[in-house]
């Protein structure tokens, strides 16, 4: 998994490398535009384009027929039924290309969320951390044995029925930042990449899940006896576009849609 993660990091670094020195927004826009493009091209490759073309013509004819035969309710009903069936056929045709797109889309989504969706906590910020145990949580005094760059704040709220302990952490100047709990070193850090960084908490060992959520905090269950997970509320960030604050997802959706539409026109993709 470490090798896959490394390859993904390298790929996204290479794509965003030309804009490495600029604001993160430009990198996000570039990846969004490229994502829209590859998604539409992948769709073209994986879908039966001729069949879609024929089906769309038929659907157009059925819709037009309904307008022409408005005076004949039976005919309208027949055409409407045909149109409904054509829609089902269309959905069936796009299932395979959507399945093909899903995996790379999931990886892209995770990378973008981790690179552009979270802000690195500043000194003085307060984070909320939750430790989940496989067994009953320990008493307050032994939950956090030590910490670096993170100051645990009282109270430590123990929820026995959920086997969880929640606490607040004040972020200090010093880095790296980590907690020691249940014999584990739990980092809250930033993995520096060529074109930016990925903010993460607790994800030490790359797992299959961490490929889709590189900033995720899930601790691989096979490696831990008592501690099941460590989650930290890492603050989100937004981008200033056209006088509005946009989430990274809004930027991604708008720009990837724009490039997908443009790609469909240029490469004559039937969608």
């Amino acid at each position: 998994m470490a090798a896959v993660r490394g390859a993904l990091d390298l790929l996204f670094d290479a794509v965003t490398w030309p804009l490495g020195g600029t604001r993160p927004l430009w990198g996000l826009i570039l990846v969004s535009l490229l994502s829209g493009l590859w998604m539409i091209l992948l769709f073209k490759t994986a879908s039966p384009q001729r069949a879609i073309k024929r089906l769309r013509r038929r659907m157009g004819a059925q819709a037009l027929g309904m307008l022409l035969y408005l005076s004949s309710p039976l005919q309208v009903l027949r055409l409407a039924g045909g149109l409904l069936w054509s829609n089902f056929l269309y959905l069936g045709m796009i299932l395979l290309p959507l399945a093909v797109i899903a995996l790379p889309f999931g990886l892209t989504y995770g990378q973008l969320e981790a690179r552009y969706g979270r802000g690195y906590p500043d000194s003085g910020d307060t984070l909320t951390a939750t430790l989940e145990y496989a067994v009953a949580p320990p008493g307050d005094e032994v939950v956090v044995s030590s910490s670096r760059g993170l100051e645990p704040l009282p109270p430590l709220v123990t929820i026995d029925s959920l086997r969880q302990v929640s606490l607040r952490l004040t972020v200090e100047e010093t880095a790296p930042r980590s907690l020691s709990a249940a014999g584990e070193e739990l980092p809250v850090g930033r993995r520096s990449l060529r074109s930016g960084s990925i903010v993460y908490a607790g994800a030490e060992t790359p797992s299959a899940a961490s490929l889709f959520r590189p900033g995720n905090s899930i601790i691989a269950p096979e490696a831990r006896d008592s501690l099941r997970s460590f989650r930290v509320s890492i603050p989100g960030r937004d981008y200033h576009v056209l006088w509005h604050g946009w989430s990274w997802l809004a930027v991604f959706l708008v720009f990837s849609t724009l490039s997908a539409v443009a790609g469909a026109v240029v490469f004559k993709v039937r969608v």
């Binding site: 709220v157 123990t158 929640s166």
Partner: peptide
């Protein structure tokens, strides 16, 4: 609202956020 009477604190789970508060404290 999960209460821990021992530490005199609560954890509030609301709309996907978790807020930890001690007695006499205001949340952001």
């Amino acid at each position: 609202v999960w209460i821990d009477r021992g530490s005199r604190g609560v954890r509030i789970d609301v709309c996907g956020e978790r807020v930890v508060l001690g007695e006499g404290e205001w949340s952001p």
